[in-house]
Write a protein that binds this DNA or RNA. Structure first.
Lengths: 312, 312
DNA sequence: TTGTACGCGTTATCAG
DNA sequence: CTGATAACGCGTACAA
């Protein structure tokens, strides 16, 4: 019935069994299978379902990766779960063989804090911008990416460089991207300029930029916290009569497809999505094989891709 | 240990047990619990993770609903799964007590087709714009909503009414919204006008509208397939020097929060999100209690909310 | 108040 | 090749 060839079975019995299966509409009980095998065949994928195209593309890659496997993905939305310590046990109730936590510091912290107590041996890999040294991770060194981007902007003689991030993201004045921005600016003797937007929509970026324009202090380069913002900024600049790449340089983060074609191809700090996902899954599988093995850790570097929007 | 008060236990033993739990980091095995109880405490939530604000808000409501319960949500992304018959068994492998399928006709069809074979007794409720008469559902009668919207537009003397939907959504020339639009137009002796956009971004809507404007055939009303588009259209019209609500009436679908405030408050066909989610969950719980009960079905009506964008 | 045995639905093993 | 049986980890009922 379960398609093994190392076992002999008479044609008649096989037919009888298959027949019964058909007749009764038999479906294996997954809880029983999971209990017996000690495996559920499920990978818990913790991510924020707040939209960004980058997240969407990562989920897609992950799904494609798993689809060639016997494993399936169970997505848990870890948005705004501020009381994570309470919610953690609920999230852990899903019978998964392991967890991949993507780009989410809150759930990662909560898990790291309570691992010993709640899930001592649950394979866990964090993936993306956040990690804990105590756990397995595939990190992406956004700080290094920000450094690359800033070096590029400074080398191409931009001086009034602003950092753009949405209000309420917690990234307006902190995080590896901002840190890279700040230290590069200070080192170059330039003063910081942060633009906090209401969101990532063209309209919202335009509003923020229009204010700068009217005050006569439009930057000559924008380091955008992600590509969604950079793409929107590109449109916003156009609407304000400015040429992205000419009047104002534009750099984004993530490397989503939409940066390639558009009004102007946009320079971006590309995250190694495929490698990151493949590695995270590999690490998870290894942890599942041997849950007692020491954590597997790897720091990936994003790569600056220079395009029209920041050509010298 | 499991907090029952109908059973007596000596303080010493209790302490000993609790102590051991602590010391060993004991956590109940969810597969075993599920097997024993015949319940996993999980609700499978099938939805497309392609972004729309409406979907985001629905997920939020659902999550809030479940958080006051002992049940947890396991989201399955059912995007672009064209080979659903193959993927269905994979999706069904998640050991859930029941499934809520939201606004997704593909997975619904696949499930309805294979229910008898793959999951004869799995509680299943579809929720939103699609349903199957053979299964439980909480439907929303978008056709009725479209009728309301069209009646409103026609009564307020708009005549050159266009229907706006994104290319590739499959909704450009079909679906209950389009059907309502078409029959109202034909009945009124007006000719159809469909605007297919590249997406829901302001830029993309603007592009489509700019073409109309330059051809001198700008409609006097836009029936937008959803609020994301309507909100973007509002900005796009402004950018083109037109006043939404004055020069061009605007009606959206869904009733997301963002329609209330903005450049212009936008008329929308509000979906009964809270009621829909609550009812779907209630139906699912009932099906879980008694899987052999006949399907529970309910058709909800969306409600037209008239705002600035379509005032007479 | 405590200990024990059984059943949940599978799979794997082992004797026939 | 077939049939019976143990074990997976838990909850519950019942005997001690």
């Amino acid at each position: 019935l379960s398609g093994r060839d190392d076992i002999a079975i008479s044609p008649e019995t096989r037919a009888k069994v298959l027949d019964a299966v058909e007749k009764l509409g038999y479906q294996p009980n997954s809880a029983a299978v999971a209990l017996n095998k000690g495996r559920s065949g499920l990978v818990g994928f913790w991510m924020s379902l707040q939209y960004s195209r980058y997240r969407g593309q990562v989920l897609d890659v992950m799904r494609t990766l798993l689809s060639s496997t016997e494993m399936a993905l169970a997505v848990s939305d870890v948005d705004e779960e501020f009381q994570w310590d309470r919610n953690l046990s609920r999230a852990l109730r899903v019978s998964v063989d392991g967890i991949i936590a993507f780009d989410n510091s809150i759930s990662l912290d909560a898990f790291a804090r309570n691992r010993a107590r709640l899930a001592p041996n649950t394979p866990f890999v964090s993936m993306g911008a956040f990690w804990s040294e105590a756990l397995s991770y595939v990190g992406v060194d956004l700080r290094a990416g920000a450094d690359q981007a800033m070096r590029h902007l400074l080398e191409t003689r931009r001086r009034r460089i602003a950092y753009v991030a949405p209000l309420g993201s917690g990234l307006v004045d902190s995080g590896p991207r901002f840190d890279g921005y700040r230290s590069a600016m200070l080192e170059a003797g330039l003063s910081l300029d942060t633009i906090a937007t209401q969101g990532a929509e063209v309209e919202q970026i335009k509003e923020a930029l229009a204010e700068r324009l009217s005050q006569g202090r439009m930057p000559d380069a924008l380091l955008c916290m992600n590509d969604d913002i950079a793409v929107s900024a590109s449109s916003a600049l156009f609407l304000l009569g400015l040429w992205p790449g000419h009047d104002v340089a534009l750099v984004g983060f993530d490397g989503i497809k939409e940066t390639q074609h558009g009004l102007v191809p946009i320079t971006t700090v590309r995250q190694p999505i495929e490698e990151m996902c493949a590695l995270a899954f590999e690490f998870l599988k290894a942890q599942i094989e041997d849950p007692t093995a020491p954590p597997l850790q790897r720091l990936l570097s994003p790569q600056l891709i220079v395009r029209e929007s920041s050509k010298p």
